[in-house]
């Protein structure tokens, strides 16, 4: 977890309005992704936020699954940028 941020629980997330749920998840994912890919953090976070909220909550608790999704997104993004 990121210092200064309390862990995000499923009940906290469920209590938030739908529109804010992705922002809540993003606020917690962003610093973790920024530590891996500082320059792509915003874009990668946006890509991962399209995943189902329950899976995102699981990824916040499981660094391995977060890292694998991040690397998958980075690979696709870089392949796309290379094509352009």
């Amino acid at each position: 977890h990121v210092r200064g941020q309390e862990p995000l629980t499923a009940s906290m997330l469920a209590a938030a309005p739908l529109k804010e749920q992705k922002q809540l998840l993003g606020e917690r994912l962003y610093p973790l992704i920024q530590a891996l890919h500082p320059t792509l953090a915003g874009k990668i976070t946006g890509m991962l936020l399209e995943i189902d909220n329950s899976e995102l909550l699981h990824m916040l608790e499981s660094p391995e699954s977060l890292h694998s999704k991040v690397e998958e997104a980075v690979a696709v993004l870089q392949a796309h940028q290379a094509k352009e």
Partner: peptide, 26 residues
């Protein structure tokens, strides 16, 4: 098990954290 396979969307909107939103609005 029923989770949809993750297909990264390169056109997904970039996420902007709240602290950066405030910085850019100042």
């Amino acid at each position: 098990v029923d989770a949809k396979p993750f297909v990264p969307n390169v056109h997904a909107a970039e996420f902007i954290p709240t602290f950066q939103q405030k910085k850019s609005s100042l």
